[in-house]
Design a protein around this nucleic acid. Structure first.
Ligand SMILES: [Mn+2]
Ligand SMILES: [Mn+2]
Ligand SMILES: [Zn+2]
Ligand SMILES: [Zn+2]
Lengths: 173, 173
DNA sequence: TTTGTTATTGGAAACCATTTTCAATAGGAA
DNA sequence: TTCCTATTGAAAATGGTTTCCAATAACAAA
């Protein structure tokens, strides 16, 4: 917490350019990692960098391969360990889209949450992020969460919505 | 199709008792399996029987163990194969609740669909079936499906909603 | 009922994403 | 710079699921 504040203080004395770079990259994640008492290692930083530069839903191996390009020393094991930690502190979401491997995306960008749900093509595995009905969906989910929490004595922390179907390509085949 | 009709004809000449037994058991599934051109084997019948007698979300091994009690000759491999087939013909749903194994439930009872969604306890893995907001949820999902189908050119066939949280037991620990 | 065809089976081995183990290394507070 | 120990990479283990293949059983036809 104090760490995040310190970074902000620095910005006030630096140029607008640097602030823009901060917003673009994953630098804002670093304070979060350290805030939880974890060491910010080259591998962890590289994994965050890869995740922050894509809208895709990468598997552990996808991430391993991409990180390898700029930091060849990394091992697949560490990618798994890093992802596990990032999921635990809530910085990353872990999904199962039914293709036998876990897939990951950053839970939050520099501009805050970018809540969306997913369309999954059962033909080719394509994943589409959509935000179209998010507001209505979230409103209903919130209401349902309250009702369900009460009735079933559950402390609900999270939800998952996915639609399955065939994308245009797969339909025309 | 004709096969189902034949079964109905038989009932007219049989007792009410037998009709009740039919409604209770999984007999109605059999026509479905054969209707798709699959052989109705002892193993497949036993798997359907286990699935039709529970509200739980069993793993392949759970089912294997239960089937074993009445039909010890069955192999785990066949349970996997049978479940795969039942999912393919739409008689069974396959879920991933995040505990590393697939879980299954009958998609439809003798009285038709019994649509519900799930509450998942991230502490102990408990799954709760709920029907409380199903109508509203399904209404919204239907609307969303239409919008999303059009906008993203997806032929949506299915959806998934799950809430994650802590059950009462896990909260008090 | 018997027969013939072949879909289905059980068991063993293979598969493969993920986890564990362990000695070597590097982050970062002092 | 030093020291402590969290973190690492490589190799091996794990465990759910799939593949392989010869034996078997479902069931249409006779
Ligand atoms: Mn996404
Ligand atoms: Mn259920
Ligand atoms: Zn597709
Ligand atoms: Zn629980």
């Amino acid at each position: 917490m104090e760490r995040l504040f310190l970074l902000k203080m620095v910005f006030i004395n630096k140029s607008k350019v640097m602030e823009k770079e901060f917003e673009r990259g994953h630098h804002w994640c670093r304070g979060r990692v350290k805030g939880f008492g974890f060491r910010l290692t080259l591998g962890r930083d590289a994994v965050l960098d890869v995740l922050s530069r894509t809208e895709d839903h990468l598997s552990a191996e996808d991430i391993y391969i991409r990180v390898h390009e700029t930091y060849p020393a990394i091992g697949l094991t560490s990618v798994y360990r890093t992802l596990d930690m990032l999921v635990n502190i809530g910085l990353v979401y872990k999904f199962d889209f039914g293709d036998g491997r876990a897939r990951f995306e950053l839970a939050e960008g520099p501009k805050g949450k970018d809540h969306h749900h997913h369309l999954v093509c059962t033909g080719c595995g394509r994943i589409v992020n959509y935000r179209d009905f998010i507001d209505e969906e979230v409103a209903l989910l919130k209401k349902a969460e309250e009702g369900l929490s009460e009735k079933h004595n559950f402390a609900i922390t999270n939800h998952l919505i996915q639609f399955y179907g065939l994308c245009e390509d797969c339909r025309n085949k």
